[in-house]
Design a protein around this nucleic acid. Structure first.
Lengths: 176, 176
DNA sequence: GCCAATTGCTTGAAGCCTAAAGAAATTGGC
DNA sequence: GCCAATTTCTTTAGGCTTCAAGCAATTGGC
């Protein structure tokens, strides 16, 4: 914060301008602003999806997300798989699954080959309900992004892929 | 889900291809994929920032965010202001502020002109600690985005601004 | 076969978050 | 001045989320 709004110079120019420039703190205001904008966008859209899911189907976003993961695989997944794919903790999945089994959307059974493993899959009811929600969900997303041209969408896809790769690299540098 | 990976056709082409195309459900797969990628990027970066804040400063992201809001205004803000700026509920702010007052980072006083209003501001300690964290935080963000060129950053800023505007329009269409 | 390390999941404590209901103070129409 | 509507904040119930500790089952080195 307290970042000057200067936007036209980057690392190279700072190094060229004077010799002691390397000792001064660099300007990362643009990256910071980019991150805040990315976060604002996501929060805005996520909040909107969250309220619509609640309003129309009385379901939470985490439950919807979990069902979305399971809809892709007819034979079910283990809790660890779900946890990795959703990028949330193991303990989180345990509780989420518990409530979805309780409500009849999920079926859970212990693996025969490894009794530590729990395999979960959508029940018939769960799958049917999810498909209905997913269809509507898709139209919400289309509407939320409707002012973007097909070219904008392609360009964003490309830049976000690059961003993801950059962030993953940075994260793995920290935790090798 | 269950979306075909075809990526080359859009609304116009569907309408042109045959007359009954308008009755078929439209393809929003690209927007959906874009949303998922946006969400993945944000989750990845946010998770990384969250762990670094915890590791280095033993502070949570919501607390950091709240302090960031307050650092911008020397004279403090009301709880409602904070709640609007952070896009979280009132009740949420109440608890967050409570813990930060408890830990000595925040000062809270009742407004003289309106006794319903609570004005909060950073304490001296709170501000000093925040500045330290913010400086390091900025370098993390720079590192996480470091594979993007200045042009990429500009282009992302532009496209995300457009995305935000589009989402806001869609949200206000639903809730007028 | 034995047992140490690993893997998969659960539990518990703490914090974050929301929606809804409620309390306290202020405002504005009369 | 009166009082109904509004605004600001808190409380409550319920769910989400993480980290760390723990339990049970499996694996692999010997």
């Amino acid at each position: 914060m307290a970042v000057p709004p200067a936007a036209g110079y980057d690392r190279i120019m700072m190094l060229d301008s004077e010799t002691k420039a390397v000792e001064l703190p660099e300007d990362h205001g643009n990256e910071l602003r980019l991150w805040l904008r990315l976060l604002t966008c996501t929060t805005l859209i996520e909040g909107e999806v969250r309220s619509r899911l609640r309003e129309r189907f009385d379901v939470t976003l985490p439950r919807f997300d979990l069902m979305a993961q399971l809809d892709k695989v007819p034979d079910g997944m283990t809790l660890s798989d779900v946890s990795k794919r959703m990028m949330v903790s193991n303990g989180n999945v345990t509780g989420l699954v518990e409530r979805l089994v309780e409500s009849g959307h999920l079926d859970r059974r212990t693996s025969e080959s490894d009794r530590r493993v729990q395999v979960i899959r959508l029940t018939k009811v769960g799958r049917a309900e999810f498909r209905k929600m997913a269809a509507e969900h898709e139209t919400w997303i289309a509407d939320l992004f409707s002012d973007l041209t097909p070219k904008d969408v392609r360009e964003l896809m490309r830049l976000l892929a690059k961003t993801k790769a950059s962030a993953q690299k940075s994260a793995s540098r920290r935790m090798p």
